[in-house]
Amino acid sequence: MKKQIGLFFGSFNPIHIGHLIIANHLVEHSALDELWLVVTPQNPFKEKQSLLNNHLRLEMVHLAIADYPKLRASDIEFHLPQPNYTIHTLAYLEEKYPKLHFALIMGEDNLKNLHKWKNYEQILSNYPIYVYPRLSEGTVSEALTSHPNIQYVRAPIVELSATFIREEIKKKQNVRPLLPESVWQHIDKLGLYL
């Protein structure tokens, strides 16, 4: 049987404890063998100005997951055309790793907007999607909640955003408890987000 790999896409600007809680919970409480944190250079739905350099964000992901053997950092999207569309990344991964089987990890807030994604029907029919709970406005359509490829995972609800962390750092607030220790030290040492 093919090894099951969960893909958790994000800007990780910076990676924080919320990301780690979700990633670890999913890899421990699902059929996934590994979970890859895919650092996205350019999300088509986000502004690029506020993004830290790709390699700095990737380095922070490596630091954050050093003690988690089932988690991997991935720079796969650094080598693909931008903005990054999930469907293109999946096609590339299928070709590069034919012995692996990929699944998507997303928050319920992203599932509500799945219909806006490029070729979302193709993603939906070909890949399992593990959905973790998020507090957000609106509801998910019945067609999605009952879809056979969508699996809700009872993960902790973590309402923590990288945007909030960046704003707090700018104001010189102590965000140390919100970040893995190695990431906090790295940000502090390099004076990132000030």
Rank of each mutant, 00 (worst) to 15 (best):
V158Y: 12
I123R: 04
E47G: 14
E181F: 06
K118D: 14
K112P: 02
Y130C: 02
W117G: 06
A91K: 14
W184E: 00
R166M: 00
S74E: 11
A143H: 07
Q185F: 07
G18E: 06
K116L: 13
S30C: 15
S136Q: 15
E94C: 04
T145F: 03
D188Q: 15
V61E: 01
E95D: 11
P133A: 10
E47K: 13
P98A: 14
K172T: 08
D33P: 04
L71T: 09
Q185A: 12
L114H: 00
H25G: 05
K99G: 13
F12W: 12
L32W: 01
N110T: 08
Y97N: 15
N24C: 11
T40K: 04
L51G: 07
L135G: 10
L114Y: 05
S161L: 12
K172F: 05
F164C: 12
L179M: 13
A143C: 07
L26C: 01
P128T: 07
N53A: 11
A103E: 10
D33Y: 09
L37E: 09
N126M: 05
H79D: 13
L93D: 00
I165L: 09
G107C: 04
K112H: 10
I129D: 05
Y120D: 08
L144F: 06
H19E: 01
M60S: 06
N13T: 04
Q42D: 09
S74H: 08
V175H: 02
V27K: 02
T86F: 09
Q185Y: 02
A31P: 10
L35C: 05
N43D: 13
E181I: 06
I150R: 05
D188L: 12
L111H: 10
N84W: 00
Q185T: 12
S11T: 12
L178C: 10
H19M: 04
R176L: 12
E59I: 02
H115G: 10
I65R: 03
L58V: 07
L58E: 05
G10N: 04
L194Y: 14
K96T: 15
L52D: 03
I17D: 01
Y92V: 12
L144K: 00
L7R: 04
I87D: 01
L58D: 00
Q122P: 00
T89L: 01
L51I: 13
L104Y: 07
N149D: 00
H115I: 07
N53M: 07
P81K: 09
P69V: 00
K70G: 06
L160Q: 15
E137R: 13
N13M: 06
S182E: 09
F12E: 08
R72F: 10
V175R: 03
A143F: 03
V61W: 03
F102W: 14
I150F: 02
I76S: 08
A64C: 06
P83N: 06
L178M: 15
A31D: 15
I65Y: 01
V27S: 05
I87S: 02
G138A: 11
N174I: 01
E168V: 01
V158P: 10
I105P: 02
N24T: 14
V153K: 05
E59C: 02
Y132W: 02
P41D: 09
N24E: 15
Q185H: 14
L124N: 01
V61F: 04
L90F: 10
R154E: 11
K3D: 09
D75Q: 11
I187A: 01
F9A: 07
G107V: 03
F8D: 00
K189N: 14
K170F: 05
M60A: 08
V140W: 11
I129P: 02
